[in-house]
Computed example of a mutant assay.
Amino acid sequence: METTLELRLTYWVYLNGIRFFGPGRAELLAHIQETGSISGAAKAMEMSYKKAWRMVEEMNLEGKSPYVVAKKGGKEGGGTALTERGKAVVAAYNRLDHKLQALLKEEQELLDLI
Rank of each mutant, 00 (worst) to 15 (best):
T10D: 12
E34M: 06
A41Q: 06
M1T: 11
A102I: 07
T35V: 02
A81C: 08
G17N: 04
E46N: 14
G78Q: 08
Y67N: 01
L104Y: 05
M59H: 09
L96T: 15
M59A: 10
G17M: 02
M55L: 03
K75N: 13
H31G: 00
K75W: 12
G22R: 04
A70Y: 12
L113S: 13
T35M: 13
L5F: 09
K51A: 07
L15C: 00
E34K: 15
L100M: 15
A92G: 09
L111K: 14
V56K: 00
A52W: 00
K72W: 10
L61S: 15
R8H: 06
W53I: 01
K105T: 03
A42M: 05
I38K: 00
L113A: 11
G86Q: 11
K43L: 08
L96C: 15
K72A: 15
A92N: 09
E6F: 02
Q108A: 15
A26V: 07
R19W: 07
P66V: 00
M45L: 15
K64R: 14
M47N: 04
V68A: 12
R95K: 12
E34V: 06
K71T: 15
Y11S: 09
G74M: 15
L111C: 14
K43P: 02
V56Y: 00
L111P: 08
A102K: 09
A26Q: 09
V90K: 01
L5W: 02
A81Y: 03
K51R: 07
T35R: 15
I32Q: 08
E76N: 09
P66G: 10
H31F: 04
V89W: 11
L100K: 06
E58C: 07
G17W: 02
G24R: 03
G77I: 08
I18K: 14
N94W: 01
E57L: 05
F21I: 02
A41F: 01
W12M: 12
F20G: 00
I18C: 02
E62S: 02
M47Y: 04
A41M: 09
I18R: 10
K43M: 12
A26Y: 06
L103A: 14
G77K: 08
T10I: 00
F21G: 03
R85K: 08
L7C: 00
N60Q: 08
L7D: 00
W12Y: 08
G17D: 05
R8N: 09
R85S: 03
E109V: 05
A26C: 14
E27D: 08
G86P: 14
G63C: 13
V90Q: 04
E27I: 10
H98S: 13
A102P: 03
A92Q: 14
Y11H: 02
